Simulated assay, not measured.
Amino acid sequence: MRRFLLTVGYCGTSLRGVQKQLDEGVNGKACSVHGLLEKALVHLRPANPPELYISSRTDAGVHALCNTLHVDLERLPSQPPYEPEYITIGVNRYFQKTKADIRVHRTVHVPPTFHARFNATGRTYLYRLAVIRPEADLSQCQSLSFDALIPIGELHRCYLVKSPFDVEKVKEACEILQGSHDFATFAGKTGSGVDTKRTINQITVTEGRPLLDPAFEPLYSNLQFWDITVNSRSFLYRQVRKTVGVLVALGQERISFDDLHRMLSIPSRDSWPSKAITAPPAGLYLVNVHYPLEAFCFPYPDFSAVDSWEEDKKL
């Protein structure tokens, strides 16, 4: 039996998140990332039932440029062991046939001690904001709906935000949030006894860009894109989306820095300001899961996993 690390990307719009659901496929219900990957691996006909361990859970509607998982696969005695390339090609062929919005980018043979979740040293997320410019033509918008301003290429790929939006305040708030804090105010539902202290290694806001060339879509002239990037070893449930919601509320002057300091100094769900909302999942992307190179070292001279992971990081 061999253990493999798979790096996968997916568009989360039509998926039910990462975690496997008990009613998947019943009455046409959408599937999870876990469920789809499991079905694809079963399609390779391993001798053992594949048991997946995914590094990072993402909610329904959240996308991933790179999520990771490990799985042990064994072939029948009459067949040679699985090779990484065979798994990548076979799983993606299954996704093509089933029209699933998920792809395996790389498969690597890793040591039997490797764990996709516990060996991870960090995770990086990106949140894309599309801010409506103050000078935007709003004549095509009805009532308070601004859906007419969303370029079709950005549908379910960003968070449309109204002006005013003070990006300098957002940058100042990022500096406050960076470091170690009790983020209980920024967490979704958590079980009793869960440690809500986390360390944000880095959180930045930088000018973003559209997914398509604006020359092909005049609606882009109404929008200014901003990218919020955040890195930490781990995050609380919905912590990133709630953090972005607070940053947007600050940028729009719906809440103050006093509100932000209260959220950090009195960590509690009761400290959540009523004028801040959790950012929607559509703008959130899991960019990368980080590992130390020693996690890929076999107890015997086999450096193929290390070499493959180094090449993967260059892509």
Rank of each mutant, 00 (worst) to 15 (best):
D72S: 07
L149S: 00
Q79S: 14
T121L: 12
P84Y: 03
C158Q: 07
H43Q: 11
V167Y: 01
T58M: 08
I102H: 01
L44F: 07
E154G: 01
E74C: 12
R157Y: 04
Y125G: 00
Y82M: 06
L126R: 11
T107R: 04
F114L: 07
H115D: 11
D101Q: 11
N48Y: 10
Q96M: 14
L160F: 06
E85Q: 14
P134H: 07
A136G: 06
K97S: 13
K162Y: 09
H70V: 02
R45F: 14
P151G: 08
T98C: 07
L155Q: 12
R103S: 11
E85L: 11
P164C: 05
H105R: 11
H105W: 10
I54F: 03
D59S: 07
L129S: 02
V71E: 00
H115K: 06
Y125W: 07
K162T: 11
I150A: 04
A47V: 08
H70D: 07
R106K: 15
R75L: 07
V161K: 00
L69S: 01
Q140W: 10
K162E: 10
I152D: 13
N92E: 09
G61H: 05
E154W: 01
C141D: 03
T58P: 05
L44I: 08
L144F: 15
G122V: 04
H43G: 06
Y86D: 15
E74L: 11
D101L: 09
R128V: 00
C66G: 08
V42E: 15
S143R: 13
R123C: 02
P46W: 06
L44H: 05
D101F: 07
N119R: 07
E74S: 13
R45N: 13
G153H: 10
K99A: 12
T68E: 08
E154P: 00
A116N: 01
L41F: 08
